[in-house]
């Protein structure tokens, strides 16, 4: 371990931040070479660098937001699940990977179809028919090799959801139906895992952070009947923009939660109206 740290220190270079502050940095190619030399993962090499006050260059612009090197270490040691890899989840997973959330569970049983091309950033004309979970894994591997991206290309059900999500620090609800959203909330309560709810329809979007035991979805949706979906998006559809907006806000909540920021959208529903150009925050029953 000592030897590993020493090797990393030898590869560190002095640099100057855009604000004019000097710092020690390590490049992606140096991280790769030291990880391969010591047969360890890219993630382990990055964490060891950070523990020695050396900033992997790829995170340099994030540190001001995530609470410095300690915050980045917290993120690299975190495990998040993205439930649903459509308009919301496909982008959310990539943003989490770019921020360096160390383990990402990518859950969706669907494959890409043509009607996804208008809004799902992972869908391309070339990958129609491919599993969303696998496409997401491949994309994340290209974006940040420090992240363990684990695809699960099946739908979450009552039978598999608990074992699937156990051990996660946060779960992003990027689903497209109320039945599974409520199943997820129930599971999160049981496993004591916070979830970040996001939903979209046409010009509108909403976000809320639900901690285990909060009323959460029960406070948001009226008279939910199991198996009956009643969001207005079924009629109005979803464009390219609102999923991106809501996914970004969900990821920001997840990052805040993982680095222990207290200012969460808890017991509040943020409702975004991009047609009128307004945001409402509705207090919810705890």
């Amino acid at each position: 371990m000592q030897e590993f740290s020493e090797a990393i220190k030898l590869l560190a270079e002095e640099s100057i931040s855009p604000a004019g502050k000097p710092y020690f940095t390590i490049s992606l190619s140096s991280v790769r070479s030291v990880a391969s030399q010591f047969s360890c993962s890219i993630k382990e090499a990055e964490i060891t660098a950070l523990k020695n006050s050396i900033i992997p260059e790829r995170y340099e612009r994030s540190l001001g937001t995530v609470g410095g090197m300690q915050g980045q270490i917290l993120l690299l040691n975190s495990r998040a699940a993205v439930m649903g890899l459509g308009g919301l989840g496909g982008l959310a997973a990539e943003l989490l990977a770019r921020m360096g959330v160390g383990t990402l569970l990518l859950i969706d049983g669907d494959s890409f179809s043509e009607s996804n091309l208008n809004r799902q950033v992972l869908a391309t004309e070339e990958n129609l028919g491919e599993k969303k979970a696998e496409v997401s894994r491949n994309r994340i591997n290209k974006v940040n090799a420090a992240v363990d991206a684990i695809p699960f290309a099946q739908m979450a059900t009552e039978d598999n959801i608990e074992s699937l999500l156990d051990g996660c620090h946060v779960i992003l609800d990027c689903l497209d139906n109320l039945r599974t959203r409520f199943l997820l909330q129930e599971t999160c309560k049981k496993l004591s895992i916070p979830m970040i709810h996001g939903a979209i329809a046409q010009f509108y979007g909403q976000v809320s952070t639900i901690l285990p035991g909060d009323q959460g979805l029960n406070a948001i949706y009226r008279s939910f009947e199991k198996g009956k979906d009643n969001g207005i998006e079924k009629e109005l559809g979803n464009p390219a923009t609102t999923p991106a907006l809501v996914a970004a806000w969900q990821v920001q909540e997840a990052i805040k939660l993982l680095i222990n920021k207290k200012e969460l959208l808890r017991n509040r529903l943020l409702f975004i109206d991009t047609l009128e150009g307004s945001c409402e925050t509705i207090q919810l029953e705890g």
Binding site: L178, R181, A199, A201, Y221, D229, G231, P243
Partner: peptide
């Protein structure tokens, strides 16, 4: 606070009505 349709309104209360959205 979310309420059901039979909730009896009181003087001065603020009622906000939203459509449910659930897409992903």
């Amino acid at each position: 606070r979310r309420q059901e349709w039979d909730y009896i309104l009181q003087e001065g209360e603020r009622v906000a009505i939203f459509p449910p959205i659930a897409g992903g």
